[in-house]
């Protein structure tokens, strides 16, 4: 919670601030406290019906609605963009149901950042909080279909089959083929699915100064990476974890065609009859580097 905000929310007998009823808010907050107390542990919660379908970000939305206070400034991104359909719709619903809540597209100014697929490139600071929309909360899902068995595996710290998946990848492709949702061990205990963020973003969770909260609406699970917590990607000792290189054939690093950055996650934009263009995926970071030319 940002220092500016308090847990007090405006009381009103007819209008609900934040859409959720008191019981839902209390349940979500208790769930989040438990998730922060046991880093990486998947806390079950009720996942209320929302006016959008499950699977479209209801987990992240419920977290935001349960946490937001009027003093917060909210940023909603989808794939690094503030203006994509999913981000716009979620932002519109949240602001409509949280009167007084300000929104921003600038990472530096936001206190709550709800995201799908990306962590902002800009270094986060204490007072901010990340909220992730999660499609599949359990990293073991790819190796074990039964949830009952997965829970036993988590309880016993039995992640051997996940390691076998890594082994099989290295044997087949000479490298680990997981491009996003890369499993990582939190605080030396539970292994989490960090939601579909690219490998590039995973190191940003390690010892981050902010809390990262993950909400899966369809699967009804919450989990968290508290501030300043170890997040270690699963990797063999002799095959280190590596992020995307964005290297050209001559091994030089592609730069953003707009802002020239060589230290950001890039999108490849195919061009007809020309080599592809590479652009920053994080729109706000790109605009910030250019000094916000549009005054955004």
């Amino acid at each position: 919670m940002s220092p500016a905000s308090s847990l007090q929310r405006p009381a009103s007998s007819c209008d609900r601030f934040g859409f959720l009823d008191d019981f839902a808010v209390r349940e979500m907050r208790r769930g989040m406290l438990k998730a922060l107390a046991i880093p990486g542990y998947q806390v079950p919660y009720a996942s209320r019906e929302m006016p959008i379908a499950r699977g479209f970000g209801t987990g992240g939305m419920q977290l935001t609605l349960a946490l937001a206070v009027p003093q917060d400034r909210l940023k909603v991104i989808d794939q690094g963009a503030d203006d994509s359909v999913n981000a716009v719709n979620l932002r519109r619903f949240i602001t409509a149901s949280c009167p007084g809540l300000a929104t921003t597209t600038r990472t530096a100014e936001a206190t709550l950042i709800q995201t799908r697929h990306r962590v902002p490139e800009r270094q986060l600071a204490p007072g901010q909080m990340m909220i992730y929309q999660v499609p599949y909360p359990d990293p073991l899902q790819i190796v074990e279909p039964s949830e009952a068995k997965r829970r036993r595996c988590h309880a016993h710290g039995d992640y051997a089959r996940l390691w076998v998946k890594l082994y099989e990848d290295v044997v087949r492709f000479r490298e680990v083929s997981i491009s996003n949702r890369y499993p990582a061990r939190v605080a030396g205990r539970y292994i989490i699915d960090p939601s579909p963020i690219p490998r590039w973003d995973l190191p940003k969770l390690h010892c981050s100064p902010v809390a990262h909260l993950f909400g899966a609406g369809r699967e009804k699970k919450l989990y968290a990476v508290p501030p300043f917590t170890e997040v270690v990607p699963l990797a063999f000792d002799d095959i280190p974890f590596a992020v995307e290189g964005f290297r050209a054939t001559d091994c030089s690093r592609h730069a953003c065609a707009t802002c020239g950055a060589t230290d950001t996650f890039l999108d490849e934009i195919p061009q007809v009859g020309a080599p592809p263009r590479w652009l920053c995926n994080d729109q706000d970071r790109c605009a910030e580097r250019q000094g916000y030319p549009d005054g955004a």
Partner: peptide, 13 residues
């Protein structure tokens, strides 16, 4: 490999 990984071996080679 699964049995070795269960035992805590983490070196691919």
């Amino acid at each position: 490999a699964e049995r070795l990984l269960c035992g805590g071996e983490r070196r691919f080679q």
